[in-house]
Each structure stands twice: as structure tokens, then as C-alpha cells.
Design a protein around this nucleic acid. Structure first.
Lengths: 184, 184
DNA sequence: ATGAATGCAAAGGTTTTGCACCCCC
DNA sequence: GGGGGTGCAAAACCTTTGCATTCAT
């Protein structure tokens, strides 16, 4: 059984923080933008995607919408509506919260973000829809969210669904676990 | 690869309902109590479990708590706090909602119920903790919740977690799919 | 000029909390 | 009689909506 089939990504890149301290917000960890240049590139690409969608659906351009997108790309990997509001308030206090709530569905519809698993408090977690499907593993100690992908599980799900007479559309799979940070 | 490793249980037992009609509430389907005698047996067993917990934690007996438990066992397989409130209101209108919200954590702590996957509207779904772990497959058409268990996926999760340096504690796995009811 | 998009504030729906009272041990 | 448990109502919390206004096309 090949180990190469696993892949993992730490959403939180700041590995220096002590793991034992519980955080108030998952997002405190996921806020570290990994690479400014990469983020800018991505923002540029996604802005294009947004514009395409806006044109296609005969919507109108809006500065607020682009500000929101910028904050998402630069600061958030996994975020709730409230996280986003809070961050947006720091960079762009002029954008109202109703606008945020009204635009999240637009970003989802344009496949720029997608709804992920619910966070620890039960709120919808959004994340960038980068095209690469992954599932989540959340550390119960440090609350960081990691991503994993395992082809064997994916395949098995399809098999199970099929055997049971279902056509699978999507799934959410979260493992709550303890990372070994503490014991290292 | 043996097929016998799959198991499935329909939470909703009323198979006569037309599948095409979307429901307002998941619970409308999961409300069909399968067998009165079995439910009473279970209630008796769980009441004992509750009493043990109450004694152990030096809490006190309460009639409301037992009423709530009775409604859970008799009417609910998968339910949100609000579902429970609504049903409770019919059988025991004298029990206040604060009491329900305050007791749900007690039932969870005593391992009588557990938090399940979030429902379609994002609310926490509780379910009886019957000791048999299972995951869920939800039909996007008829909204019924089915339970499945696949040992291969379970094992694989442990392997993945272990390889990545995590000690898994629990997980939630929901497949959103379309059942073949319509096309039959 | 038309209708999308916005900010604000008010309303909505769900869960939690404060408080006085009740009841179990 | 001490402290958990309760009901009620108020508050807290997050999200949606109404409305007048602004802005993009």
C-alpha cells in the first residue's frame, strides 16, 4: 500500500506557535498568508474569473465585491462569514456587512469559493475553491485545520454509494484528531 | 473485495412517500418510530443510563429531563434542537425551551445522544448514540438520511491519520447523493 | 434610464442568560 | 437548606431583509 497516495497541507503556516494553547478562532491560524506574490497572482486570476461571471450573468461590477475578494485571497484560507467581516473591517471599514452576506453566494456561484465543513462552533466555513478536492483533519488541541487527500477513500466512497444505489454528488469528511505537536 | 462489508439502514422507514417531493424538514422523515415496543425498551435502558450519570455527577433527578428523553427516543432519530422543541411542545407543552437547550449537553455528556453531521440548514443534528458508529448518506432529492458503515473507509482513515502524525478521535463523513428512487 | 449594488437599520430565527422560584437530596 | 433545575422573558448572536440611495451600463 503506497504511502505516496497521501498528501497533506498545513493551512496554518506558522509552525512556531505552541500547540497547547487553545485558540478562540480557527481563523487566527489560517490567517497567515503564505506568500504575498502568490496571493497577488491568485487574486488577479480570481478577479478575472469574477469578471467573467459578472458579465455572463449580466450583473454589474462593484468595488466592494473586489475588496471582499481581495481580503479572502490575501487573508483567508478557511473562514466564516464573521471572520471575513472582521478582517474586512480592518482593511475596508466602508464595506457593510449586508454586502458581505449578499456577496458570499455570488462567490460560491462563480466557483471562486465553496462551502466547506462547519467549524467547531457550527458555522459554515468557506474556503477557496482551487479545484483540488481535499478533506480536512482538525487538531482538537491546537485547532489548526489541515487538508488531506486520499485516493483510496475517494474511490471507496464511490463504490459504497454505487452499491447502495446512490449517485454521489459531493461529500464532507472531517477527521477530528490530535496532532503530535505536543509530544514531539 | 467483499460486498458484505457494506451495511445500510434507512433512517426513514416510510418508504411509501414519493421521493421527488422536497421536504421542509429532514425530521419529517426521520420521525417515524419503527416499533413501539423496541422504543420502550430502549427508553427504559437509556433512562437507567441517565440515572447513572446523574448519580455519578451528583446532579439531581428531574422530570423534565426524563420527558425530553422520552420524546427523543420515541420520535427522533436525527433531530435538531428545534425539531425536538417542536415535538416536545405537542407531548409536554409545560417543558420550556431553555430546559431543552440546557439538557442537550447533559445527554451528550452522558453519551445518550451525540452530535451528528449538520443538517441542510447548518443546524447541529443530534442522534442517539447507540454505540454503533456509522456515517451518513443524504439524498439531495428526497432529503432522507441513511446510515452506512464501511470498514475499509474506517481503517483507511486511521492509516491516513497515523501516517500524517495524528491520533484520530472521531470523524464526520457525509455523502450527499441522489438515491435511485426516482428512476425506479 | 434601468436595474444592480450598497449601507444602514430593523427584523428574523436560534441559542444563551439572568432571575426568581421550585424541588430533589 | 443548599444547590441543581425550571420557566419565563430578555439578551445575545448571526443572518436576512426593507428601503432609500448610489452607481454601473
Amino acid at each position: 500500500m503506497s504511502q505516496a497516495r497521501f498528501s497533506i497541507t498545513a493551512t496554518a503556516l506558522d509552525q512556531r506557535l505552541p500547540c497547547g494553547r487553545p485558540l478562540q478562532k480557527i481563523s487566527e491560524y489560517s490567517s497567515c498568508a503564505p506568500d504575498r506574490r502568490a496571493a497577488d497572482d491568485l487574486l488577479h486570476r480570481l478577479t478575472g474569473k469574477l469578471n467573467d461571471f459578472v458579465r455572463e450573468k449580466k450583473l454589474k461590477k462593484s468595488e466592494s465585491r473586489e475588496k471582499i475578494l481581495a481580503v479572502i485571497v490575501r487573508e483567508a484560507r478557511h473562514f466564516t462569514a464573521l471572520d471575513l467581516l472582521e478582517r474586512l473591517g480592518k482593511s475596508y471599514p466602508d464595506v457593510g456587512k449586508a454586502t458581505v452576506y449578499r456577496n458570499l453566494p455570488v462567490f460560491v456561484a462563480s466557483r471562486i469559493i465553496k462551502e466547506g465543513p462547519p467549524d467547531v462552533d457550527g458555522h459554515v466555513l468557506y474556503e477557496l475553491a482551487d479545484g483540488h478536492h481535499h478533506d480536512h483533519i482538525v487538531c482538537l488541541d491546537c485547532r489548526r485545520i489541515f487538508e488531506f487527500h486520499d485516493e483510496a477513500i475517494e474511490k471507496r466512497q464511490e463504490l459504497v454509494s454505487d452499491q447502495l444505489g446512490f449517485v454521489p454528488r459531493e461529500h464532507r469528511h472531517i477527521i477530528y484528531a490530535k496532532c503530535s505537536y505536543r509530544s514531539r
